[in-house]
Design a protein around this nucleic acid. Sequence first.
DNA 1: CTAGATTATGCTCAACATGAGCATAAAGGT
DNA 2: ACCTTTATGCTCATGTTGAGCATAATCTAG
Lengths: 295, 295
Amino acid sequence: MPPELIAVLIAVSDDRPMVLTLEGGRLLPSGPLEAGHRSLQTGLRLWVEHQTGHALGHVEQLYTFADAPADVGPDGRRVLISYLALTRIRRGERGWRGWYDYFPWEDQTAPEGRDLVLRIVQLLDEWAARASSAAEQEARRQRVALTFGLEGLGWDDELVLQRYELLWEAALVPESASPGAAVLPGLGMARDERRVLATAMARLRAKIRYRPVIYELMPDSFTLLHLQRTVEAVAGQPMHKQNFRRLVAQQGLIEETGEVAPDTRGRPARLFRFRREVIGARRIAGSKLPLARPI
Amino acid sequence: MPPELIAVLIAVSDDRPMVLTLEGGRLLPSGPLEAGHRSLQTGLRLWVEHQTGHALGHVEQLYTFADAPADVGPDGRRVLISYLALTRIRRGERGWRGWYDYFPWEDQTAPEGRDLVLRIVQLLDEWAARASSAAEQEARRQRVALTFGLEGLGWDDELVLQRYELLWEAALVPESASPGAAVLPGLGMARDERRVLATAMARLRAKIRYRPVIYELMPDSFTLLHLQRTVEAVAGQPMHKQNFRRLVAQQGLIEETGEVAPDTRGRPARLFRFRREVIGARRIAGSKLPLARPI
DNA sequence: CTAGATTATGCTCAACATGAGCATAAAGGT
DNA sequence: ACCTTTATGCTCATGTTGAGCATAATCTAG
């Protein structure tokens, strides 16, 4: 069985990060590496275009997964080479789903997400208490505290995969080997797809901090608030407005279009565009995420 | 043909970063994924132990490569899943080579490395001038400036792979499709191994900035200067001594052993050890590399 | 025994970055 | 005219970073 190529296509629409899925949201675009493919990336592009009609722009390799030995079929082991692609939704495309539909606890901008985390931590505390030895109990508690930012550690938005795997072990998600009684809200996916999605979310959240990739998700022109809302949606965390603007301004990556946003409430906002020229011209940082306290 | 697992084992000895090789330094430990392997990592561990006798500690996946279509053999395409492992050299082990033997231009702590870069930039300028169109010439020049830190951009120690691929394109390394007359100093390797090594170097250089992985490369007890020299050796850049100590001290990751380094010149230095307990207890940063100007 | 030479270690300073919040501006709606 | 809403400018305290001065302990050469 040849390795399989699998893609996580991300776009942001109405301040919601979206992922392109197949089969009612249970699968991601994927297909086996074939002899005719010129490279891994070309193979990936062909499969995605064939299955979704979406032509990919910039693409980045994520991680290579292998099936657990229990799942090894007659043709051998399934090896998944995963990719992240940032793009924009095109008119009439179907299959886009909000990524927080799959990971509702990852949205810490809304009170629902924060409440959900409180409930999860309770359930995980019970799980920790069920460990056989005292040492294992303590180890579990420390892991919960670390991944969910308890005890003054603060929420780390990049620990998406670690949180998912903890929930998986605690049998709180439908994919778990023997899901417990309390299954959390959040759609499941087939096979390993939700782990692949979690990996993509973590990588994107990490990347917007040190590369200006957020602009790949923006329309041609946008207001500063729109940009902030997009970053917040991806990071799942609210940010301080004035500091965000200061940061974006001093990076010099955008310029005014001279126009003003239409149909807005309040004082009209100036429109900006990304300066494509600067890419390549110098080394550039992303947004360092000026965080705000949860409201 | 099943995917192949390949490992870059790194250690630091006498302030020189070393890599574990086979076949006279031309190969890295590797072997195909087999049905009996419980996971990719287990497969990798088995192969490395079988081929080198070295049991691996912590391991991290790097990148998955595929052969160029021209190199696809009768059994199909070769897919390489690469890993980085940090370790220490054990007594009597053979096959360890200095990584700067393969990438001499990556050592910017020594004047030889800096002089070599000057020569390389000259050769690349000529290569840029040989481009067919003016636009392509300009694009090449910009790429050279970016990857080699010209025009006030500063040397970026993480661009190991980008520099290697640029030299490859300019036919300045023995692996190039048609190596030119001027082949640079630096050992070549078989197949894609030198690209894998470059990827590992870049990842390690990036990682010591935000995770305390440098301690995986240190002996049980060490002086602050020894720690600094190790970081400098990995990063290939000199650092400011006092600032380095301030940084390390404020991280609270090490503690004094109470002893003093033996057989030292100058004022004797206190010995420190890494506090293994703090791993997992909190989220911790690496060394932010207080850089010094090239001397 | 003393003057270097050599490495260790403590401390200061300026420049800049970051988190927080006050204040004012410019729209639309009642 | 006033209130609501969003945009935008500015200040302030604190922390981080790059650079370098000064002093402390050791050894070696003369």
